[in-house]
Amino acid sequence: MKFALFTGCVAKGATRELMLSTMKSAEGLGIEFVEMKSAACCGAGVVSEKNPLLADALNARTLAIAEEQNLDLVTICSTCQGILKKTECHVDTDAAYKEKVNNVLEEGGHHYAGGKIKVQHFANVLGTEEGLKLLREKVKRPLTGLKTAAFYGCYVLRPSELSLYDNTDDPTGMEEIFEILGATPVYYDSRTKCCGFPIIMMNKDASHDMAGNALIDAVDSGADCVVTGCPLCHLSLDAYQPEIHKMNKKGCSVPILHLPQLVALALGYSSQELGMDTHVVTTTGLDKILAQ
């Protein structure tokens, strides 16, 4: 399996452990990633607030680069995934708009044709028949006894017509991966909710409250850890967990993992090799559970 890897900005910045563990997962699974080094930021739905055409032009340029590489595009961030799919939809469903966007790209030597490549989150790739087969073959250290709660991230689920999950109100894609890794999935209501990160600069209390409610729900449902496919969710749930504790009368401390970290743990990599020591909330408890 070979893909064009759209890293997104945060995996190169505040969550470099996501990039590290993605590459370790790929190495362990034998997946080849070709990093898209000239692709611009997806805009995270924020650039489009300023200028919707600009956001679509930048993202259509990214899709065009993947077409030039003749590789399906893989994201490792729920937000990047949702935003790229949104542009794909805007451009593919309106021929006149596509022409307008391509006119902007032309001078840079790019042209977005459409329909040539797939845009998938890494979790979607692992959830394909081929991906699940690969996981089954490569798991070296089953995560037996680890109660694992998925936190999907809004943008891979909604709007549902852009999602690659069949049932966006009750998705099972991440939980199926957990089971193959040997972990025990924990189902809880908040797993499809918002982490609050997009308003962390505008309405801090509401943002932390949203994250806190999700964490309490996961812990009350028995989770040892929360696993997310979105680095923004990771920042909200992990880096701000001390603030969340202060706000919530009912305290809870739970480690937050990136999906590739969980995968790579099962492939036999150590928590240090996956940058888990850089998390704000310690993950040492997980090593103890896995050592039992």
Partner: peptide
């Protein structure tokens, strides 16, 4: 907190390859 955990984004921010094309798109729009 992020600084002491080594999670702070790199101080010297790196541009993507071919950033000039991105700047051109901004100019055009």
């Amino acid at each position: 907190r992020m600084f002491f955990k080594g999670k702070n984004p790199p101080i010297f921010h790196k541009s993507i390859d071919d950033v000039e094309d991105v700047k051109r798109i901004y100019m055009e729009l």
